[in-house]
Design a protein around this nucleic acid. Structure first.
Length: 753
DNA sequence: ATAGGGTTAG
């Protein structure tokens, strides 16, 4: 074999000196695989050899031969030496379609899309006619940069010339139109296509799902005579994305029954599905299959496995998988782990951090976070972004700040990516001011940067400011995306701006052609709910066909509670419990709603139903960071080393705030405890404990930041308001939905949350 | 085989 390779080298070398006749005579096909996999030219390390060939060719004048030129050009492109290719290309006296195409494809492959578009323009100006190879490279670029105009132009050109009607090219066009959000174009093209293959169908099935036309999409899917893995994956994932988790599961079972092949895509999708439905048994079966198929090394699959075990509360299993992964990448340390691998690893670490947070184990989250930073095989700047987002979600600002300092220390510029994640981190950790500093320091903001500051303002209840920013952004010609609209709508709902919210919701659909997703709908329901338009919510749910979404109903239910509409509340709760019979929050909300309105028997019935169905309550926890320690508090828990002190101080504090007008909101406690006991339960809510601890151990006058995994209760909210007034301290509480800034006895949420 | 290519995932 070695000999063959050697002789091949000589022959091809000769071939380039004496034009390319010898290659074809030598029986090129015999060495096909070598040509691609071990040919010295394809390997970029052999740049020198290619160079030699080039200079030899220049010396003996064979570069005058266009064929040889194209060959050498192709070698440069294959070995990714685009600068050399460009240089040679400029030297070629007469350039044909092939030469242009080779260069264009080279730039397309390394992702220099701007370059491709420029070359294509030049090519047209020189009057050179593109062929299907050229068009396909250019279309790929158009689709990556969403260049609708050019794509449409090419499409028209193809139709006029009518010669390149090839299914692959038309599929690219479909994709392009969908990426540019012109669904109608795609639909028309699909109908006009002479030949459609499975890929075409898959694209359209995915598109209909994304557009929210579930029926049409399912019809198309069912009518497909030959479904491949991608068809199944598309339908399962799409259903899941739109919140039809049960239907997605059903399709997954169909897929297995049909004996379809399962790919790594299937597993990573299926595992996400399993984690949201908390079906650990099925998850373990999938895990087994993954191992048997030997695809457990795939980054995506592993991350989904880690996440699945985290969500199901099996942190031990999750950490085991993470460990295995880490050993693997250490083994791969030489040669250096690739960027993609290191990203994959960090994403898994981050999901582990959020897994601990999700399970209320904040100390462990911090521990794993620390080892993540210490043990990371590769710390490149892109991985820092993931670390920051882990800080943001876990609400551990000190680490985020340290990471910020680290970036400064290594002298890296804060680019748009970093800036956006810092803004997100600071605002999610309760420091909107720091987020603003970063925003102001960043020049040339893009849509992501704008979105992060807009969402930051939204979380903190600064609705008007968020809207002002949004309009300013639009004024500067930046096109908002779906995430931006989530921010804007959240801002409207948290600030009670009903009219504005409706305006932006229709603007999103009509002006920017963005199909609303679950988050957008939830914001709208919140918005109506806050304004007390309960009947409008009913209509809204009906009009938009979103009655299968649990989150929507839950938001509806809290509005019913707030506006004390028990009738509607009961109806809504029934709807939720049909969808999710074991949702603890619903039972608690419903029973509290009865209790608030003195319907003790009804409340008791709900509680006992909850016990009968063995619904487990997610325990309320609060945490705060002091230096580099996270302190966690659970209601009534006395395991903290300073517990005695904390409880004693809390009792004293309660006495003092009572003097300035605070009183217990006993209505929210379970009715079956005596009033005195109820007071005891309330005053030991986790956020109160955290507050007491914070006051004892932090300097007076500094703001206090507390994180909570559930929604803050009315009584604690009240308590925080009075305490902020009494001690003249700013108290910032992040609950599951938003921030509450308590200052001088008021809260930024305006008592609606 | 001197030029290219489409759909699905965190």
């Amino acid at each position: 074999m070695k000999w063959i390779c050697m002789s091949f080298r000589c022959c091809s070398f000769a071939a380039f000196l004496k034009c390319n006749i010898i290659i074809s005579r030598f029986g090129f096909h015999r060495f096909q695989s070598h040509w691609y996999h071990s040919s010295p030219f394809v390997d970029s390390k052999n740049k020198r050899l290619v160079d030699t060939l080039h200079s030899q060719a220049v010396k003996n004048g064979s570069l005058l031969n266009l064929d040889v030129c194209n060959h050498v050009l192709n070698l440069y492109v294959k070995s990714k030496n685009l600068d050399l290719a460009q240089k040679l290309f400029d030297e070629i006296p007469v350039r044909d379609t092939q030469a242009w195409t080779i260069l264009i494809s080279g730039f397309a492959q390394i992702g220099s899309f701007g370059m491709v578009l420029n070359l294509f323009r030049e090519m047209q100006m020189e009057g050179i006619c593109p062929n299907q190879f050229t068009l396909s490279s250019v279309l790929k670029c158009c689709s990556s940069v969403s260049n609708f105009q050019l794509g449409k132009g090419i499409h028209g050109w193809i139709l006029r010339n009518g010669i390149y009607r090839d299914v692959v090219l038309e599929n690219s066009m479909l994709d392009l139109y969908l990426k540019c959000r012109v669904f109608e174009y795609a639909k028309t093209l699909f109908e006009l296509m002479e030949k459609r293959d499975t890929v075409s169908w898959n694209i359209m099935i995915g598109a209909y799902l994304q557009a929210g036309d579930m029926e049409k999409s399912l019809d198309m899917f069912r009518s497909l005579p030959r479904k491949d893995v991608v068809s199944w994956n598309t339908i399962i994932d799409g259903l899941m994305q739109k919140g039809y988790e049960r239907n997605a599961l059903e399709q997954l079972y169909h897929m297995v029954e049909n004996g379809s092949e399962l790919s790594k895509f299937t597993f990573s999708i299926a595992l996400v599905l399993v984690s949201s439905l908390l079906l650990m048994q099925l998850g373990r079966q999938l895990h087994g299959r993954v191992v048997r198929l030997g695809i457990h090394n795939d980054g995506f699959v592993r991350t989904s496995l880690v996440e699945m075990y985290c969500k199901c509360g099996r942190m031990d299993k999750a950490s085991l998988i993470l460990r295995e992964m880490h050993v693997d990448s250490l083994r791969k340390k030489f040669p250096k782990v690739s960027w993609k691998e290191s990203m994959t690893e960090i994403i898994s670490w981050s999901s582990m951090v959020s897994g601990y947070v999700w399970n209320g184990k904040y100390e462990d989250a911090l521990k794993i976070f620390r080892s993540m930073v210490l043990e990371l095989v590769v710390v490149d700047i892109t991985s820092v972004t993931s670390i920051i987002s882990a800080c943001a979600n876990a609400g551990i600002m000190e680490f985020g700040r340290q990471t910020h300092a680290y970036v400064h220390k290594i002298g890296h510029k804060i680019d748009l990516h970093l800036a956006s994640s810092f803004i997100d981190m600071y605002s999610k950790c309760g420091c909107l001011n720091d987020a603003w500093v970063i925003f102001r320091q960043t020049s040339d903001p893009n849509v992501v940067l704008w979105t992060s500051i807009i969402s930051g303002c939204a979380f903190h209840g600064q609705g008007k400011e968020a809207i002002r920013l949004f309009e300013q952004m639009r004024y500067q010609g930046i096109i908002p995306n779906e995430v931006t609209f989530v921010g804007v709508l959240t801002a409207c709902s948290h600030a009670g701006l009903l009219k504005e919210g409706c305006k932006y919701f229709s603007m999103m659909k009509e002006v920017y052609h963005i199909e609303p997703g679950i988050e957008h709908y939830t914001c709208m329901v919140d918005l109506y709910g806050r304004a007390g338009c309960l009947n409008e919510i009913k209509e809204f749910i009906h009009e938009n066909g979103i009655s299968h979404l649990c989150v929507i109903w839950k938001s509806f239910l809290s509005s019913c509670r707030l506006h004390k509409n028990i009738e509607m509340g009961k109806w809504v709760a029934d709807n939720i419990l049909q969808l999710e019979p074991s949702d603890a929050g619903t039972y608690i909300l419903l029973s509290n709603m009865y209790a608030t309105n003195h319907k003790w028997e009804e409340a008791a019935r709900v509680r006992s139903l909850m016990r009968k169905r063995e619904v487990k309550k997610h325990p309320g926890q609060s945490w705060m960071q002091l230096k580099d320690q996270v302190h966690t508090f659970v209601m009534g828990d006395r395991s903290h080393p300073q517990a005695m002190e904390i409880y004693a101080y809390l009792d004293k504090l309660i006495g003092r705030v009572k003097e300035i007008g605070y009183s217990f909101d006993v209505k929210l406690v379970m009715h079956d405890v005596e009033e005195e006991q109820g007071q005891v339960l309330l005053c030991h809510h986790s956020e109160k404990l955290a507050l007491a601890y914070a006051i004892i151990y932090t300097a007076s006058g500094t703001p206090i930041r507390i994180m909570k995994n559930l929604r803050i209760c009315t009584d604690c909210h009240n308590f925080m308001k009075y305490t902020s007034q009494l001690l003249e301290r700013e108290i910032i509480v992040r609950d599951i939905h938003r921030f509450h800034h308590f200052k001088h006895g008021c809260c930024s949420c305006g008592d609606y949350w």
